[in-house]
């Protein structure tokens, strides 16, 4: 039996690796995820980032990070991670770098780079068994450029490119791409979903992943007050609602074997989550679009009916 390091909120590591002063929006869920994720990873990290909101976090001459940062083109973050991993390994092997100075190589991108533009490089890196972490901060659209739809935008959401119109009253008609399953199909040692509201769950998952060599991938729901159209103060609440409605299942897969780490005992109706965000406002006003809300509920129910059996 392994010892569980994180039991209560008191166990959240106190050391900060991200200092204040970033230009990210107030209440940004992605920043919140990164701050907590970094605490669990520890300080010996080199981040490899592809364009997205968090890129703005570390734009020369500023960085909030006490760790290293490498920015690379949008399709190629996992390829950059390969280069850095190889360089570190070779330097250590040649005795040019003390093994105590080894770093964890951690890709961080938004859902645009993860699900669309950088998916090919990710698939390659997982396939090669690259020893790295991947954190996708999923705000379900291209937030940095004005909230255009990505393949991670949920069905029924309004974005800059999927505005509800009389022809498309639902806004986005396409389903959210299941990145967890795409990653898992490669059978890497570790894949997990996380939420900034469920902090102990997140920290435990990072802790667990540390024992594996190879690709360790995390998909983090990242409430985006700016793009989702919610109060900045509601970020954690929204993340919590996404979990409690069953829209955002918390789970992990070790070498492809899935376990749900939290099963809501009684799922809240999806409406509770949808109606508090402007990106879904067209589902409620001027007239309630019962059929689309019911469709979203049905998809969630179907998902969980397979879990609970």
């Amino acid at each position: 039996m392994s010892i569980i390091k994180y039991k209560t909120l008191k166990d959240v590591p106190k050391e900060e690796f991200l200092v204040p002063g970033t230009p990210l929006c107030a209440g940004c869920g992605a920043l919140q995820v990164m701050r907590l994720f970094h605490k669990a990873l520890g300080g010996d990290v080199v981040w490899v980032n592809a364009a997205g909101c968090v890129t703005l976090m570390a734009t020369f001459p500023y960085t909030p990070l006490k760790s290293s940062w490498f920015y690379i083109a949008m399709p190629s973050a996992p390829a950059g991670a390969q280069g850095i991993r190889d360089a570190l390994d070779i330097l250590i092997k040649k005795g040019k770098l003390d093994p105590t100075e080894n770093l964890k190589v951690v890709v961080v991108t938004g859902d645009g780079a993860a699900s669309d533009i950088g998916l090919q490089a990710t698939s390659g890196a997982i396939h090669r068994g690259l020893d790295f972490f991947y954190l996708c901060v999923d705000n379900e659209a291209y937030g940095n450029t004005g909230f255009q739809a990505s393949s991670s935008s949920p069905m029924g959401s309004g974005t800059a490119t999927t505005k509800p119109t009389h022809l498309y009253p639902a806004g986005n008609v396409l389903p959210k791409k299941d990145l967890f399953e795409i990653w898992r199909s490669h059978r890497p040692p570790y894949v997990a979903t996380i939420s900034p509201s469920h902090v102990i769950d997140m920290l435990r998952k990072v802790e667990k992943s540390l024992s594996f060599k190879g690709p360790k991938l995390f998909l983090a729901l990242s409430p985006c007050p700016t793009g989702w159209g919610a109060e900045t103060s509601e970020s954690v609440k929204l993340a919590k609602l996404a979990v409690e409605t069953g829209i955002w299942p918390l789970k992990e897969a070790v070498y492809g074997e899935v376990t749900h780490t939290y099963i809501p005992s009684k799922r809240k109706p999806v409406e509770d989550y949808l109606k508090v965000q402007r990106r879904f406002a067209h589902l409620f006003k001027p007239v309630k679009n019962e059929s689309i809300i019911a469709e979203i509920q049905k998809q969630v129910d179907e998902y969980w009916s397979k879990v609970e059996h």
């Binding site: 200092v19 001459p61 500023y62 960085t63």
Partner: peptide, 19 residues
């Protein structure tokens, strides 16, 4: 001082409290 590539945690120079 002029921030350089090796500075860490220097966004603290930016006082976002004014937001």
């Amino acid at each position: 001082g002029i921030p350089d590539l090796l500075s860490v945690g220097n966004t603290a120079l930016r006082k976002t409290g004014s937001w």
